[in-house]
Design a protein around this nucleic acid. Sequence first.
DNA 1: CTGGAACCTGTCACCGACGTCAGATGCGAG
DNA 2: CTCGCATCTGACGTCGGTGACAGGTTCCAG
Lengths: 121, 121
Amino acid sequence: MRIGDLAARSGVSVRSLRYYEEQGLLASTRSAGGQRTYDDDAPARVEFLQRLYAAGLSSRTIAEVLPCVETPSRENTEDAFLRLRTERDRLSERIEDLTRTRDALDGLIEANRRHASAIAS
Amino acid sequence: MRIGDLAARSGVSVRSLRYYEEQGLLASTRSAGGQRTYDDDAPARVEFLQRLYAAGLSSRTIAEVLPCVETPSRENTEDAFLRLRTERDRLSERIEDLTRTRDALDGLIEANRRHASAIAS
DNA sequence: CTGGAACCTGTCACCGACGTCAGATGCGAG
DNA sequence: CTCGCATCTGACGTCGGTGACAGGTTCCAG
């Protein structure tokens, strides 16, 4: 699979795919002419990367966490594993915070709705 | 309350407070010498702004939503109200997405833990 | 009254993921 | 073989919320 195909399948720009590789997040083999070739796992991988980015992780953080995901061996995995749990906890806090914010917005909406109906009556 | 006090109380930099004002998100009266003065509601207001920023809203979006929050009158509130609900829904989707991501991370952690214990045994 | 801390405006720098352009090269269909 | 699309590398631009600095003014404690 070439980079254009991967981009089309994963819904990510070609630029981003090159960037992911530059950051050490996505591997590719090169053809004789130097063009990138991806295996069938790539789209899922890219989707996962997108997920982590959306969760607020930076490229560097993702890179630190990935060895834990890819090669669940030992040693160089130990701190990556800790990182992974740390990021999970951070995400958890984030979710709670966002939920509180949503509740606050709900409160505003409710107050506004009541106010509007009070005017209407 | 002067800008330094507000910054200290709300845990936001002086720079950011001036920026919020520049974006029309935070009002201040000026002293004779031109220095900003804030009333007692300001810290809560700033905290709320921080919440919205953390929820991923841009300054412009916050500005579009605020009239709905501040002056729950009618007319110029109508579309602000729609905006507010739109943003609430967007936030809701975001929360769901992050929750899915957290579940994915939990899956990885669990898999890794099992793998580690398999090695240990 | 005075000195120094706090404040003012204005401007430039930064970060990080990505857009975009340029110029060169690879690749496959006809 | 050739034409044209896809891909390559490298570089610069962008956006938004802030940091940081400069040069000047205001405020308050002593």
